[in-house]
């Protein structure tokens, strides 16, 4: 009787022990692995932060790092010691510098991050607001070989969906170009160079409004508490804090009025005619290539021939063929409308 109970206890204990301590897959093993990964992620995030400060002409500070990583300064100091010990940075006299191993690592991280965002944007149905978060995780898991394979698969893109340069292996990463939208002049033609993806809430708002790098627009009005921003045929009212996340550069090859006159294919009513000016930068990857292959190239005449019973999609006559597009896609084709052809 007793013997059996003992046996059960021992067997149970052994099962428990195995569950806990099984190499790699046991609970302990898993916990250790997760902890190792978390530490690595923190190290790599720190390195990336230092590089980003550096290319933008600023110097990383311990306090800035603590803020970025949301860690107490004491722990950051420990982290920096670790990084120095690994030969990734030099930390002397309170100044942070990347060593070449550290720089390579940081460049790889940035490359992997931006490639993964490109991948998510072009080849998956993952929602735009998720891209950054997922890439933030994935960048730590991709090896340089995997990043290269990914780049090859995507056709070696040079810009990520936020308009940032994807550095080629071994190439330096350029700093952010442009100035915040708040600093731009009213009525000056602008091109969006970058849409910052932190903090996520602001980014989600900009995404929802359809504001993408590469688009052209101008400030209609600038008040202390709001900005009226005309971009790609739509007017957006932005809080200054939100506008700060948009970087722009001034352009000279078009007049303000041209920008205000811009129209989109989706605005073409049934029976109206227009001429394609180009595709919006928000149209990327396979979607962009498909529209081009179908004949939506600059200079092409389009005619809105019929709408489906629900009002969407619309069929357009393009170079002799009748092509149906959904409203979202037609909204990516810039046109100038033409007078109805004489009957």
């Amino acid at each position: 009787m007793n013997g059996m109970a003992d046996g059960l206890v021992i067997a149970g204990g052994m099962v428990l022990l195995a569950l806990l301590c099984w190499p790699r897959h046991g609970l302990v093993g898993r916990w250790l692995a997760a902890r190792r990964l978390a530490r690595r992620v923190r190290r790599e995030d720190a390195i990336k932060h230092i590089l980003k400060r550096e290319v933008n002409g600023a110097e990383a500070t311990v306090d800035g790092l603590a803020g970025h990583l949301q860690m107490p300064t004491r722990q950051v100091l420990g982290l920096l010691e670790d990084l120095e010990h690994r030969g990734l940075i030099s930390f002397e006299g309170g100044r942070l510098h990347l060593r070449s191993a550290g720089r390579d690592l940081a460049l790889h991280l940035i490359r992997a991050h931006r490639l993964w965002e490109s991948y998510l944007s072009e080849e998956t149905g993952v929602a735009e607001v998720q891209w950054h978060r997922q890439a933030e995780r994935k960048e730590h898991l991709l090896t340089p070989q995997e990043a290269d394979a990914l780049a090859a698969r995507l056709g070696h893109p040079t810009l990520d969906p936020h308009g940032d340069v994807i550095p080629a292996p071994g190439q330096p990463v350029p700093g952010d170009v442009g100035l915040p939208l708040n600093a731009a002049d009213v009525n000056q033609p602008l091109r969006i160079t970058h849409v910052e993806d932190e903090p996520p809430a602001v980014y989600a708002q900009l995404t929802a409004q359809g504001i993408r790098p590469g688009m052209r627009g101008l400030l209609i009005e600038k008040l202390p508490h709001r900005l009226r921003f005309w971009v790609d045929g739509n007017e957006h009212v932005l809080a200054p804090l939100v506008a700060h996340n948009i970087s722009v550069e001034t352009i000279t090859d078009c007049a303000p009025q041209d920008l205000l006159d811009e129209e989109y294919l989706s605005g073409l009513d049934q029976g109206q005619r227009g001429k394609v000016l180009g595709l919006s930068p928000a149209c990327r990857g396979p979607e962009r290539r498909r529209l081009l292959d179908l004949g939506f190239v600059p200079g092409t005449e389009v005619f809105a021939e019929m709408k489906s019973p629900g009002g969407d999609p619309t069929a357009y006559r393009v170079r002799g063929a009748l092509i149906a597009l959904r409203k979202e896609q037609a909204g990516l084709v810039r046109i100038s409308s033409l007078r109805p052809a004489t009957p």
Binding site: G155, P286, R289, R290, D293
Partner: peptide, 8 residues
């Protein structure tokens, strides 16, 4: 096919 240039 519409094109040999794309990857669809």
């Amino acid at each position: 096919t519409y094109s040999l240039l794309s990857t669809s």
